[in-house]
Design a protein around this nucleic acid. Structure first.
Lengths: 339, 339
DNA sequence: CGGGGGTACTTAATCGTTTAAGCGATACCG
DNA sequence: CGGTATCGCTTAAACGATTAAGTACCCCCG
């Protein structure tokens, strides 16, 4: 049987109320009594019953973690975010509860009750996300939600401007004169921001920008056809005009997508790191151990998770939704590798 | 203000008790009253308060999901398992709560209270896992825990014997005469079982087995050196004895490790899919889109998660730990691709 | 000496739910 | 007709914690 306030009270011949006040540091008990109670509680291994507390305080102590199911299907990033959230909440009185994503129907009525929410990647096609933001549960989103959604209580964002500068700076430093941006068709704000950053970067330098658009649903063959239009041809060099305009650097958005690109480039007879320089927009162990290792932007997914946890913990103390939302920017340094 | 039993009771001029019995399908109310109550509840959008229920029933409705942090650092597999668990619990009254892993110190005292546990990958170096199994919380493990740990309530396992047969059968069908097993140093039962299966498979066919041992902490250079001892040399063919004994097929354990191996083989001048056939022990989108696509064993991580959820849900109804533990085996078919 | 005021507690109510026990009313049986 | 079983409901207690309100006691001051 678990140790309750009442048990401690009985043992010390006190009332449960006195014990509660002692343990929670509230005034109303003498210092000696408080010491005594604290010692006894420790000794008996008292752990407050969450359910009793919850019921009384109208507070679940749970934080929902929500992401569209599409994120999960293709993500190393996701695992790290989750780990960060878990770690960040570990020394609070909150616990992360995974919520099923409800992309299609937006039916979030039956979600377990939580005090707060962390929404990872609020995609504009995710009806469930809109529904969750419409509610008045304190919510932190990792990356800003689309403008048409209700404002969350807090937003955590990577330093997109800095990231673009670093990534393309890296490509330039490796000798790329005409770097292109390769985006994966997406419904998140991140890619759009990176694209804006890229266009600005090109404008500053008088470079003609090239945005190559692909999709995760493309086959490698399709990706190859798209790439062939933009990159130098290894088979028939000769067309001087074309050679001059060909792109010699790629910044690849999308978790793990740079691996596919590396493979496709190889199959095109292009040498990754020589003919074409490559930077992945999302880092992972796989980039590190690829042959050759692929330079990546470290999005710090773990830090993302930790910060989200800390932010929601902080925001829960607020009486109402802050306006404007609480903002935090996480730096995203580049990890330079062979490519 | 949320709708409570009392509100419904007042509106209908009944007692809260009657409403409770009506809603929970307990005897003690007339069918007409029950209908009336159910209609009203639906109308008012009644949702039972989890905390009140929990307190009364001594049941949190939460299922802890635990994995060693090492799994998270390198895992696509993980994302899928999580998704499966979430989906599997979605239509129960349980919700998955992520637990922080406590590898080092095994300090699990402060974990939020849960009704049940799902432990993903019970590694023998994970003190937290031992601690959790020592407790009397109903627990399902994905893969069997080490023999030195307490028995869990349920175990979900892949069909390891079948998997080995399929994988090496596939290698043979692609022309591999002398397939080797490449294992990543690990502390899980899975690799050990695969190794046993491989040895048996070799024995049946009179093939000399070769188990190549690597580690995730190895650099690609180290991995390469290890591989060079076992595989044919592309640079200096000639030693007939060595050529005969060289391995021409690899079954690679470890999530994503086959990608590294493919890269290292390439750097050795060996053609993946021709000189050396490759099968990955764990599938992922990345294997599918690799150039060339890598054949993989589909461990069905999503199904793993779903089944774990269903099993824990079922086991919670039992009065005590079943002996022997509840077992379930998930088939792991091979997905044949170019290699 | 009486009253005001602080201290250190206790009592009791509350959160929302479930469930054992109680209690009229009706029905049935001997 | 008296006894008793059954139905359909109400009352009340309980889960564990928190907190407003109440109370006993001591101290100090006028």
């Amino acid at each position: 049987m678990a140790v309750t306030l009442k048990k401690i009270a009985e043992q010390l011949d006190l009332s449960a109320a006195a014990v509660s006040m002692a343990i929670n540091g509230k005034p109303g008990v003498s210092e000696e009594t408080r010491d005594l109670v604290l010692r006894t509680a420790e000794e008996l291994g008292y752990k407050p019953n969450r359910m009793g507390q919850s019921l009384r305080l109208a507070r679940t102590g749970a934080i929902g973690v929500y992401f569209p199911s599409t994120v999960l299907e293709y993500s190393l990033y996701f695992a790290e975010v989750t780990r960060g959230i878990t770690a960040g909440l570990a020394d609070t009185d909150l616990s992360p509860v995974l919520l099923p994503s409800a992309l299609e129907n937006g039916d979030v009525r039956d979600f377990p009750s939580v005090d707060g929410l962390i929404i990872v990647e609020p995609h504009s096609d995710d009806l469930g996300m809109f529904e969750l933001l419409r509610g008045d549960t304190p919510t932190v989103t990792l990356d800003p939600p689309p403008p048409s959604a209700e404002r969350p209580w807090g937003i955590i964002e990577s330093d997109n401007a800095g990231l673009v500068r670093e990534a393309f700076g890296h490509l330039a430093s490796r000798g790329s004169r005409l770097p292109a941006l390769l985006t994966v068709e997406t419904v998140s704000d991140w890619t759009a921001q990176v694209e804006r950053g890229y266009l600005a970067w090109c404008a500053e330098r008088g470079i003609e920008p090239a945005v190559i658009r692909t999709s995760v649903t493309h086959s490698n063959e399709e990706v190859r056809q798209i790439l062939e239009r933009a990159l130098p041809s290894a088979r028939q060099p000769g067309d001087a005009q074309r050679e001059r305009e060909a792109r010699d650097g790629l910044f690849v958005c999308g978790d793990g997508f740079a691996l596919r690109i590396a493979g496709v480039l190889r199959s095109m007879g292009l040498s990754v790191g020589e003919d074409v320089h490559l930077v992945s927009g999302v880092d992972s162990t796989i980039m590190q151990y690829h042959t050759p290792p692929i330079s990546s932007v470290d999005m710090n997914p773990y830090a993302y998770g930790v910060r989200a946890a800390q932010m929601i913990h902080r925001l829960l103390k607020l009486p109402e939704r802050p306006s404007p939302p609480s903002y935090e920017v996480i730096p995203a340094p580049i990890i330079a590798r062979a490519t």
